[in-house]
Structure formats: C-alpha cells, structure tokens
Design a protein around this nucleic acid. Structure first.
Lengths: 252, 252
DNA sequence: CGTCCTATTGACTTTCGTCAACCAATGTGG
DNA sequence: CCACATTGGTTGACGAAAGTCAATAGGACG
C-alpha cells in the first residue's frame, strides 16, 4: 500500500512498564481471571501504553510470544485476503483478551484503533500457570466459547443483513459498552474511522456513510461529529433488524 | 414456514444403540480425544443412526443435555434471525464435534443434512470426566480454538468475497475431505441442497445456481447430478479467490 | 403415471461497489 | 500566522452484482 519511498519518521509511541498496583485497576484483569489468581498474573504482566492509533501490536504469521488484554481504548483484529482486501474480525474493547497463538503463530493481525492501554502476558508463563491451575483453564475455555459465539453472531450479520442493518447491529452492540455510551446524553463514541468500519461490516466506506445518512434521515441517530453519534431511537434500531434484507419488488 | 395444516406423518427415523466395538470404528472419536481416554467415553456414548435428512437433532434455546460427534453423514448448524431468515453457521462432517452448551442451553440448531450416524455423549458425564482429566480439557480447548478459526475464515468469506468466490471456497474446503471427494474421479459430493447452500453462503438459492452455472461455463467444474460435481480445475478455483470482488467500472 | 420437491432459467429491480470530485479538519514547515 | 499537504468524510453518478418473482424442467417416489 505505501510507496516505501517516504517513511514517517515518527516512532510508534509506546511506553512499557510493569504492573503497578496503585495505577492499574485490578478490575480490568477480572474478566479474564477469577479472583485469587490475579496476583500471579499481575506479577508477569507488562503494561503497554500506546499513545496513538494505528500502532501494530502484532501481524499475522509472526511468532506468538504474548497474549494481550485491553485495559483502555480499542484494538482491531484483522485478516487479509489473497486479493489484498482486509476484513476486521473483531473489535477488542476494555476487558477483552486476544493474541492466542495457533501452532505458535499469530493467525490474525492486531492494531490500535485509538490510543490504548494493554496488558501483555508472556504466553510461555501463562501456559505454565494454566497447567498448574485447572480453574484458569476453565476460564480460558469459557473465554474461547464466548469468542466463538461472538464470531457466529457476526456470521449471521454478514450473511443475512443489509448494510444499514449491519451498521445498526454494530451501534447497538457498542452501545452496550459503558466505556463508549452514555445513558444520560445518549451519545455513543465510535472509535473507528469510516473505512475501518467498512472493513468491519464487509462493505465500502462510502456505503457505510450512506447507511449513516439513511439512519439519520429516518431519525434513528444523529451525527454529532466524526466519532460521536447520538442514539435517538434505540428501539427503532432494534426493529430494523427484524425487517427483511430487501424491500421486495413492487407488485403490479 | 409450513402451513401447519398437513403434517408429514412419518416419524423421524432414528435408531439408538450403545457403542459397539465391532461395528463402530474407534478412529471416529479420535479427533475429539487422545488415545487412552477413548475407552471411557465409548462406555458412555450412544450411537444414533439418523435414517434421513432434515431430522432435528436439537434446536436453539433447548436445554442442552448432550454433546455430539459425527461418525458418518453431515449435520448443519444453524441460527435464525429475528426476520425469520436462516444462516447456516457450519457444516459438521465426520470427526467434528458439536452441541457444546452455553449456560445450559443450545444456542444453535442442528439438523441432519443427509442420513447420518452420530455419537451422543451426556454432557453431565463428559463434564465429570473433564474435571478429572486435564488433558481432555486441553483437547476440548484446542477444538474450540479450531472452531473459532474456522468461524473467522467464514467471516472473511462473507465479508470480502462475491458469491462465485464463496461457492468456490466452499467447494475447495469440501474437497479437502476424503469422505466427499475422490482424487481419482475428481468427483465431489455436495451433501447440501441448493437452498441449504444458499443459507450457508449468505445468499439466495437462485444466486447459488447462477454461480454454479458460471463456474461450469468457465470450465472450472461440471455438474454431474444434483449432488455430484466434477472438479475440473482446482487451481483455477483457487485463483478465483485472488480476484477482486467486483470487476469495476469500465474506464472511458 | 401423477405428485411433490428441487433445480434451473428469465425478467426485472434494488442494493451496493467503484470512480470521481469536493469538503473539512488537522498538521507541518516556512 | 499562513500556505500547503495530508487525511478522512461526504455526495453524486453510474453500472455490476445480487435478490425477488415467476414460470418451467427434471427427478424421486409412491
């Protein structure tokens, strides 16, 4: 994609430091692990503070040494097709876990989508701990099962819904997350650019924009700024998913 | 879908019997479990012989008491949208495992797609065994990880490929399975009807048929019968996946 | 040999992808 | 501070892909 002749000289701005009990909320690791085992992991976790969006965390095909958990911000998990297109498989939000290796390699790529704070755990160490603690294994199993169900929901969305429905589905899902939605103001922060969103929904950025326009014209949402959307009628968004994919031909 | 006024009176023809060492190949359970623990599971497994296609194995929302493994035939795992459409999430072929519960319930439906032989294991018993045998847990974890990667491949397919590419992708994948593809005759058995295939690929049955016609016209495949397709040019099928989703507008 | 179900093809329409032009925000170097 | 470049967002035009309706063909099976 890039010409290769002019590199941005700015480095990816990341700061790494060990886990700090005073600065880092223990609740962030809670989703991943049951109480009581957290201390062991904190000791081996490093905190990475990515200062900007579009930092690469890892790329598909690389040796997988670390597993990550999101503390703040958002990370996109993506895969590239042989035709050079990109599909965003999932958006990792605070509390989510990613980077599990397959045969020692990462099968997907991960990049920040906004400034983000991550916990990084060496896979080797985690693996050792897993063997000693069957309960941890169960947690991991549940986590995988959750990811699988999530992936299945996306299959349904991509297979059966039109673009406006897919966008509605995304907005609804994101609005479940308190970090991105305020119940008071009804304002939702969309941490993706239009073209990231397009790759997430399996379409083109222009089509995403037209879907936004359509929802706005029908009074379901209102675009406040690039990244802020006011949800005006959540129920109507939900009802949209009940509709057919296509209006059908007018009968004569 | 059905009118409800005329029920088929024929019962779903299933025969159940305990696992029989002489009739049932032990290799079938091997994918699921490492050697040495197989015997324990055989003792608690029941063999179900579904005589016909479209038998319901379980439906989404039901209490989940059993986990299943396919010995012969094929099973479709599906989910229904609120708009009444159906998406087939996965096709379970010999060696595959399905029916893991989520909070005690099945989240998907499962039906036979052809006559099929299944191994049925009570979840309760399996769960007990899992607790005693951490190695079994690891097998299950690997299995889930595999299913997740499979689901991610389908997300890419649905999000980035046109219908001909999706069909090609399906044919290629099925041709990996010796039970359905003969290297000698290059004949592939497609165990799905066109409309099942449509629900699998996220499209309409007419569109599937047109994709078949297109591949045949271009000499990549040849339709022998409803369910038999001769793969004439596997490489060309693979190359199809490298192409862009759409040809693009003619430049003036 | 009719009946039922699936497959196929044609006609028509909607949805969506692509190209192109333009706007808005932001950042950078002079 | 301003000219300028860069990036991302938006809109319009156009055509290709795909969904829907309808009619027909083709097997399987009683």
């Amino acid at each position: 994609m890039s010409t290769g002749s002019h590199f941005k000289t700015r480095l990816p701005e990341i700061r790494a430091r060990p886990f700090d009990r005073k600065k880092d909320a223990p609740t962030q690791i809670e989703n991943l692990l049951p109480r009581g085992q957290q201390a062991r992991l904190r000791a081996i976790a490093t905190v990475l503070e990515h200062q900007r969006a579009n930092n690469t965390i890892f790329s598909e095909g690389e040796d997988a040494h670390f597993v990550y958990s999101v503390a703040a911000g958002a990370v996109r998990i993506s895969r590239h097709t042989e035709s050079g297109r990109r599909q965003i498989l999932a958006l990792m939000l605070p509390g989510d876990l990613f980077g599990l290796p397959d045969c020692g390699l990462y099968v997907n790529s991960a990049e920040t989508v906004s400034p983000a704070t991550l916990y990084r755990v060496p896979w080797q160490r985690l693996h050792e701990v897993l063997l000693e603690e069957p309960e941890l294994q169960v947690s991991l199993l549940l986590r995988l099962a959750f990811d699988l169900r999530q992936a299945q929901r996306r299959i349904v969305m991509l297979g059966q819904h039109n673009i406006a429905q897919r966008l509605a589905s995304f907005l609804i899902e994101l609005s479940q997350h308190p970090d991105f939605y305020s119940e008071q103001t009804h304002q939702l922060e969309v941490p993706l650019t239009r073209s990231d969103l397009a790759d997430y929904l399996g379409t083109a950025s222009e089509t995403v924009i037209r879907a936004f326009s359509k929802l706005e014209k029908n009074g379901l949402i209102r675009r406040i700024s690039r990244a802020i959307v006011e949800i005006q009628d959540l129920d109507a968004l939900r009802n949209l998913l009940q509709e057919k994919r296509r209006v059908g031909r007018l009968r004569r």
